[in-house]
Amino acid sequence: GWQYRFPTTMHLLSCTRPLLDWVVRERVRKHPRIHLMERTTALALLGDATRVSGVRVSARASGPREPYDLHAALVVDATGRSSAAPKWLAALGPATPLAECVDPGLSYTTVQYKGAPGSDVPFLGVHIRPDRDHPRGAVLLPVEADRWILTAYGMRGHQPPTDQAGVLHFLGGLADPVLHEWARHNEPAAPPRGFRNTANRRYLYERAGAAPSGFLAVGDACCTFNPIHGHG
Rank of each mutant, 00 (worst) to 15 (best):
P130R: 04
A61P: 09
G63I: 11
V23K: 11
F170D: 03
V102C: 03
G137E: 07
Q159D: 14
L46P: 03
F215G: 02
P161R: 04
L70Q: 08
A84E: 14
A183S: 11
M10E: 08
V102T: 07
L45Q: 00
H229W: 14
P227W: 00
L74N: 15
R193M: 02
E187D: 14
T79H: 12
D69S: 12
V23P: 02
D133R: 12
P32Y: 13
L216W: 05
L12I: 04
T198F: 00
M37W: 14
T50Y: 09
R202C: 10
W88M: 15
E100W: 14
L140Q: 06
H185E: 11
E100R: 14
P7C: 06
S213R: 11
P160I: 00
L106E: 06
A85C: 08
C222W: 12
R56G: 03
K114H: 09
R156N: 10
E66G: 09
K30M: 08
D220S: 04
R51G: 03
D131V: 08
D133I: 04
L43W: 01
G172Q: 01
H158E: 10
S83C: 04
R17V: 05
N200K: 02
L46F: 00
C223V: 08
L179D: 03
L150P: 07
Y203T: 07
L45T: 06
G63T: 09
A49G: 13
A190Y: 00
D131P: 05
T50W: 07
S62P: 10
S62H: 14
A61N: 14
R39D: 07
P191W: 00
A49E: 13
V218E: 01
F6S: 05
R81W: 06
D220I: 01
P64V: 08
L45W: 01
D120I: 02
T40R: 12
L45H: 01
Y4M: 00
V139T: 14
L70C: 11
T41W: 04
D69F: 12
R147C: 10
Q112I: 03
G232P: 04
W182Y: 10
R202K: 07
C101S: 15
D131Y: 08
P7M: 01
F195H: 03
C101T: 15
R132L: 14
S107C: 13
G214M: 07
D131G: 10
L174H: 01
V102K: 11
A44P: 03
C222T: 01
L19Q: 08
A208V: 04
F225E: 07
G230S: 04
R56V: 09
